[in-house]
Design a protein around this nucleic acid. Sequence first.
DNA 1: TTGTAAGCGTTATCAG
DNA 2: CTGATAACGCTTACAA
Lengths: 335, 335
Amino acid sequence: MATTIHDVARLAGVSASTVSKYINGGSLREKNNSKIQQAIDQLDFKPNTIARSLKNNRTRTVGVILPSLSNAFCAAIISSFEKELQKNGYGVLICDCAEDPKAELSCAQFLMDKKVDGIVNMPLSESPEFLPLFQESRIPVILIDQKPADMICDTVLVDNLNASYTAVEYLINRRHRKIAIICGDQERFTANERLTGYMRVMQDYGIAIRDEYIRYCNYRASSSYEIVKSLMTMPDPPTAIFATSYDLTIGTVTALNELELTIGKDISLIGFDGLALSAIIRPPLAMVTQPMEEIGQRAADLLLRRMRGDYSGFPSTERLKTTFIAASSVRDLNA
Amino acid sequence: MATTIHDVARLAGVSASTVSKYINGGSLREKNNSKIQQAIDQLDFKPNTIARSLKNNRTRTVGVILPSLSNAFCAAIISSFEKELQKNGYGVLICDCAEDPKAELSCAQFLMDKKVDGIVNMPLSESPEFLPLFQESRIPVILIDQKPADMICDTVLVDNLNASYTAVEYLINRRHRKIAIICGDQERFTANERLTGYMRVMQDYGIAIRDEYIRYCNYRASSSYEIVKSLMTMPDPPTAIFATSYDLTIGTVTALNELELTIGKDISLIGFDGLALSAIIRPPLAMVTQPMEEIGQRAADLLLRRMRGDYSGFPSTERLKTTFIAASSVRDLNA
DNA sequence: TTGTAAGCGTTATCAG
DNA sequence: CTGATAACGCTTACAA
């Protein structure tokens, strides 16, 4: 059916191994070079990548394990990651965990069976169980966004602490004192870092921390929606809210709208990610944005290096900076 | 290094082909069944999928070619598509075209080299050049969202015409007559269908169609942003705008905000996709939503059937229904 | 039912 | 530089 290297060899009047050498950049007689190329063109020969993989244990395919593709933050990162790998001739196999931490392990198993050359994972679980599996097999793994406490692994993430610090400081400077923060899972690294930033700036400015203003949840918009409703019906509600993820921001805005509270007047708000939201919400939303493209790119570059066998600087932890965007969703109480 | 079927055979005291038969569900002596299973467990044997693929020309991997993963509409569809294929043991290889129609062909070539068992494509080009390639190789292809005029292919899309008709009719019923529509590429099937729905309902209600209210662009938020600015500074601006995609909706809202026009009062608006937007924009945004999950699922089901060799009903065109969500972003001019 | 042997399309080794 | 030969790990006739 498909044309093989043998067909090319026959047509060119050389052996299969010579053709193989030609394809893989070996040096041979000029005469043969052209003969072989001619035969390849004539037959429109494409080497069978499966056979190749079987031979050299490299599939030129990498796996991605992520919480959900419907999550804009994930999708944006993967989009830039994929572009970079595509450029380098790699295929990208995507496994969506549907936000289920247990799925991570089975996805990893699946990718292992597919013999991927490398893995990128945005972990759901605190410390990915599958990691040792890959490390034994010497298949490089890059973690994104979260950093597990007890495992050694290359990681690309952002400076959550300062992101949070800066945002809350902005509120404090505008004389806000009753500041609520809506965090993700208490267990998760990122959530924790963001909370720590909040704690630290509050302490640095000598503001009392009130537990009832600190709320954890599972990162769903519906959760922050409920939280905001509860926060705003407290006897002493906050004057400002800091929502620490894209989805949490969505839920917050939705709730505030329903409560008919005017953002930037009745309540101040700083969101997270979702630059696009900033412009469509009125008033424009102040927020912290992560460099999603850059995260994907860095992860790609690092993974490519590791797959090339370059393990310099292992384990590398790349911390990228977030950006704070000021906007009128925060009321200046000095004014 | 890795354990092979031979290792299992040796340990179980049978031949490799017997083990192979066992794995592939052949019938053999009860005694051997258990011996082999034991050996498999003991060695933690996993068949090498690459070797398998080489043998039977099936990789259990499908390819996806799409305009961009950063596009929420694409991502949502692929998310549900991937889930369905994952359930069925397939891997999903994703190729992001970065909105470049030329990239489609090279992505297709790449996937062909990867020996995917099937393809799903959300086409950028009017008629995907790569289609014949796959059809020759009898590799099933499912097109999503767009339907090329001149090619025979399975397709899953929505009823754009009625989607548009219903939305514009809603405006008309509220006495809007000066209705602008922001369409995508004039060339593209979907854009055309949506425009046709607009034309038809306008005609059905005997409303004069004014060319200056019909605007085409490249589906980017920045384009609709410019268009809206131009529309609203016309001597006789529209009283209502229908934005026909997610990104076009974003750009429209942004522009209206900047122009300080109050949606639902100074100007009426109906958007497209992005249910999440509806709740965070104030007032809530009326819009047309596509059943993205279902699109992904249908495409998956159809592709799985085709890969099973079931070509009944080919070429099948599945038309799904959109939903119209009324909201106060449309002012009732009767009132 | 089970085993032997050939082959899927490449590449690596090693002799010429 | 070139080519014969033997893998890579699995499946599948075909023979026993």
